Computed example of a mutant assay.
Amino acid sequence: MAVLNLCFCSKIAPLPNPPKSLSLRQISSSQSQPINPSFPLPSYRTPQDAQTQSHLSSLCESISKASVLTLLSASLVFASNPALAFKGGGPYGSEVTRGQDLSGKDFSGKTLIKQDFKTSILRQANFKGAKLLGASFFDADLTGADLSEADLRGADFSLANVTKANLSNANLEGALATGNTSFRGSIISGADFTDVPLREDQREYLCKVADGVNPMTGNETKETLLCK
């Protein structure tokens, strides 16, 4: 924006100064010469023109300063929050974890409340005992991940692949599992699925392998799944 404003202002050329008085000989000489249509006729600057040019110059200077300040402010914002400088960066935590390949990464025991893991690859990642309240795993790949004893209350597993994951003794109260979320092959012994909206086919599958009691809530896994 600043460059555009400067270019615009640089094109405002000063208006031509009025010519000096012409002598009678020059006037008569010019009248005898044929007028060349391709030759631009001179324009004359009046006091009003000079005033207009002064106003335009002041306006351009103000716009340029404002644009520079705007760009400087934007630079300071990105510098103060590095996560915003990366595509897909999340607003929580100290690392950019959205849309990243974090296979095998160790997050065990960490506090990652509302952390953004959308569309990330988290195969065999270790989240054992982590606090992940409200974290987003939307469309993430959690194949083989260790989520045992993790606090996953209110976490979003919509469209996530949670196959062959370890969810033993995890607390998933109020978590989201809509769409094509799959828990096939996962260990869910002692997991709490209270108020988790599961597809009927997923619920039936989990009920076949459910057992144990969650140590944090005292709820039986089968009861939280509303198994018949």
Rank of each mutant, 00 (worst) to 15 (best):
G109S: 14
F127L: 14
K114L: 10
K114A: 04
N161S: 05
K131P: 02
S108V: 00
A125H: 01
D106K: 01
L142W: 00
E149R: 07
F138E: 09
A155L: 05
A140W: 09
T178N: 12
K105Y: 08
L167C: 12
I121Y: 05
A135Q: 02
L133W: 01
L132A: 06
T111P: 03
K110Y: 01
K118Q: 01
S120G: 03
F137T: 15
N126I: 04
G134H: 04
L142H: 00
A140V: 11
A140K: 01
I113S: 09
R153Y: 09
L152H: 11
T163S: 14
N126M: 11
F117S: 06
A130T: 03
L132M: 14
K110R: 12
Q115N: 09
S158Q: 05
G109Q: 07
A150N: 09
S168M: 13
D151M: 04
S136H: 07
A170V: 05
L112A: 14
D151V: 05
K105L: 08
S120W: 12
K114N: 08
S120V: 06
G104Y: 14
I113L: 10
K128G: 14
A125M: 11
S120M: 08
T143S: 14
T178D: 06
E149Q: 12
S120D: 10
A170M: 07
S136W: 00
A140I: 10
D156I: 00
S168K: 06
E173Y: 04
L172D: 04
A155G: 08
A150H: 05
S148W: 03
A135K: 00
K128Y: 14
K118G: 03
G104F: 09
G129I: 01
L133H: 08
N169D: 03
N171K: 12
L159Q: 06
A170I: 11
K131F: 06
R153D: 07
K118D: 01
K164S: 11
S168I: 01
T163F: 14
A155T: 07
R123A: 11
L133S: 07
K114G: 06
G144E: 05
Q115M: 08
T143H: 10
K105E: 08
A150C: 13
F117I: 00
Q124E: 12
G129W: 00
A125L: 11
A130V: 02
G144T: 05
L159T: 13
F157E: 00
F157H: 04
F157N: 01
R123D: 02
A135F: 09
D141R: 00
A175E: 00
D151K: 06
L176Y: 06
L147Q: 11
T163G: 15
F117N: 10
F137R: 09
S120P: 03
A165V: 00
T143K: 08
N161Q: 04
L132W: 07
T119I: 10
T143N: 06
L112F: 13
K114R: 13
K105C: 06
G104M: 14
D106E: 08
N171D: 05
G109I: 13
